[in-house]
Design a binder for these strands. Sequence first.
DNA 1: CTAGACATGTTACTCTATCACATTTCTCTT
DNA 2: AAGAGAAATGTGATAGAGTAACATGTCTAG
Lengths: 171, 171
Amino acid sequence: MSSPETDPDATLAFARHDHAHCACDTLARAEAEAARRGARLTPVRKRTLEILLEAHRAMGAYEVLDRLAADGFGNQPPVAYRALEFLVENGLAHRVRRLNAFAACMHPGEDHAPVFLICRVCDAVAEAPGAAVRAALDQAAADLGFAVERANIEALGLCPACAGGADDATV
Amino acid sequence: MSSPETDPDATLAFARHDHAHCACDTLARAEAEAARRGARLTPVRKRTLEILLEAHRAMGAYEVLDRLAADGFGNQPPVAYRALEFLVENGLAHRVRRLNAFAACMHPGEDHAPVFLICRVCDAVAEAPGAAVRAALDQAAADLGFAVERANIEALGLCPACAGGADDATV
DNA sequence: CTAGACATGTTACTCTATCACATTTCTCTT
DNA sequence: AAGAGAAATGTGATAGAGTAACATGTCTAG
């Protein structure tokens, strides 16, 4: 893997923006959403969400665990997995299966069907609005009598930056 | 997990049909497709595809490996992973990330965007036609300047049988 | 203030996947 | 047909991801 950690602007959204602001804002909305659902956003869980928001990219469970441990929480896998599972169950984070990773939800509360766009060159991950995709999926499933409850829609390809400038061709 | 192995009719397609025939037919089409692409469908690879077709369901890499080993091939993980990767790369099989599993492609050669429908009750997996879903995905990605190359579209929910008869409610 | 539910911490382990290297087989060119 | 290079396979070792089970602690409702 390359190191998206050193290039935060290329993660989770392809456009540049104020991370500190959007993270703080999203955290506030996430807390409101948790309260609305009656879900208990305990210290570990809140810190886990903060970690995802601060990193502003998809993170592996063990990477999250390292940071939790550094903050004085447990240092065993279940600590991270339980917190992450809680966040996903409550719509505050998403799981990106292609990357075996997790990312904070950028639109907590707004009933949405996230679509993840993963750049194969720079590893950036963007959460795109996927209402139309989800609708098409529901329809395709309904045609077979299948009722969709949860969906993972993930695409691998080229982000604007990597498609425009340097491709993987002979550069 | 429940045991889809004991209930083959509930796998990969929700409708009952002649497995032996569809497996044999699909294998023939897969071989033609491999030849067309100039891909070498070696013994291990062919046997791997046969195993997936015979099982007619999503299988874990290690489960495939066990059968390969029983057939006299190597018994180390890379043996299965390499063969499976080859099949996926050449459109002869698909990877179902949600299940950490692989399934034979039911429509080799026909350029298609598979959508996987996974029943959370009986674990059946169906490969549904997803051209419309893929089109919506491409559009959503294009709106952000992202070019989709490969996509994983997987849905968890209830298959017709499980939705109709016994739900997970208090039965 | 006590019982039950919920949450956390920890140990241990299983399952999934890849790296690295030796060996063989195939294919293309001459 | 011979030989070089590429592709494929086998094997050992190991990294990475995820879960089971149980003990302990904490919150909350009656």
